[in-house]
Nucleic acid binder design. Structure first.
Lengths: 213, 213
DNA sequence: GTCTATATGTTGATAGAC
DNA sequence: GTCTATCAACATATAGAC
């Protein structure tokens, strides 16, 4: 038996419109996302995916070269969408404070709006072989660099004063990643509210407490 | 192929001394931990575990009732050790500030020192059936309650002013959970340093920025 | 405690008809 | 595009000898 405690709260396999495909390929993509998010890559068989769609296992191979290629495509889409949102965020903002706010909002928004995609992209990428994971990995490094650079600029400008820039950046990334598991939760929070709250928390991390040694 | 990008940086399947077992059972426990942490529960076969130990698959069933029971034991141990550390932390500290510091330190310490155990406990618990996950789930709820109560007490006392108590608590939990994936990292940080840094970040989350609306 | 041997089901993937 | 049929490998688990 599997799935006693759900891995994530989200129930819909939302995909970015610009990455969605027509017809059966698109339905396989969405169903693979749903099942990989719930049960993991190794916990999902191509038969599971087929049954969910009323298809036979063999049909999958008319649209994707292998089960691993299906996962690779989802992982790539997730990282591409994440980087796209992060890049758009920095461009639109001026100065370290506004840029950090924008980056954290974008980071959290992606993890809330595309909770399943984000879960699969980060939690299942380790199931991929070196060749198939490479594109996503390159995108991931760029997104991380974006966040590190904004923090570094803020520190250099004397606007940010984190106790440790690298750890603070990891913490900001980590709390955002976690959102994809609990959102929407039972607090009645919208995506924008969660994004704004995390942006505020991130800014506080950059600001010394009065009276702290 | 699997494991192109490692799921976590830690390489040793450390178990709490008081939960360790003698002889073959203990070696199976440690090896199960190692492989479940690296490749996931569904990505690991009992043959993989046997081969790593120079044993035949059948031997596992002399020590554990099933593969799932082996995972359940690891998940239970992880959550038990986590709660134990959290409880010891609150007891030793006085007042919301010291208690939050102590809790976050304990939370992060567990995720750094027992990185594989923490990874398996949180990332693989969803593979367990309702009966087998129940004990760990109960422990998890207690640990979460501990953190929420300390934050609530700090807010009630006027010492903490988070933008949103529930989200801030989730964020503190999330950044700690992430530590088990990247620690020890390449920054040359000790467990104590990472723990202290996260405690400081958590306290900052509770403290309004000067001039913020 | 560990072994051999095996039962029984499921896996990812392919070939070829319609 | 979808189907049936099938393969070879692998899965978890058990029985019983040493």
């Amino acid at each position: 038996m599997k799935g006693a405690v759900p891995r994530l709260v989200a129930e819909l396999p939302t995909l970015p419109p610009e990455e969605m495909r027509d017809g059966t390929a698109g339905r396989i993509l969405a169903t693979g996302l749903l099942l990989f998010a719930r049960n993991g890559y190794h916990g999902t068989s191509i038969r599971d995916i087929g049954e969910e769609l009323g298809l036979k296992p063999a049909n999958l191979y008319d649209h994707f070269r292998s089960k691993e290629h299906l996962l690779a495509e989802l992982v790539r889409i997730g990282h591409a969408e994440h980087l796209r949102a992060m890049q758009a965020a920095v461009v639109r903002a001026d100065g370290p404070i506004a840029q950090l706010q924008a980056l954290v909002r974008a980071h959290v928004r992606i993890h809330a709006e595309y909770a399943m995609l984000a879960t699969v992209a980060t939690s299942e990428m380790h199931a991929l072989s070196p060749e198939l994971v490479a594109p996503a990995l390159a995108l991931r490094r760029q997104a991380e660099a974006l966040l590190r650079e904004v923090v570094a600029r803020g520190v250099a400008a004397g606007v940010f004063d984190p106790p440790h820039a690298w750890v603070a950046t990891a913490a900001i990334g980590g709390m955002g990643i976690r959102v994809s598991f609990w959102f929407p939760g039972d607090q009645g929070l919208t995506i924008d509210q969660v994004a704004d709250l995390h942006a505020e928390l991130a800014l506080r991390m950059m600001t010394p407490r009065p009276g702290a040694r």
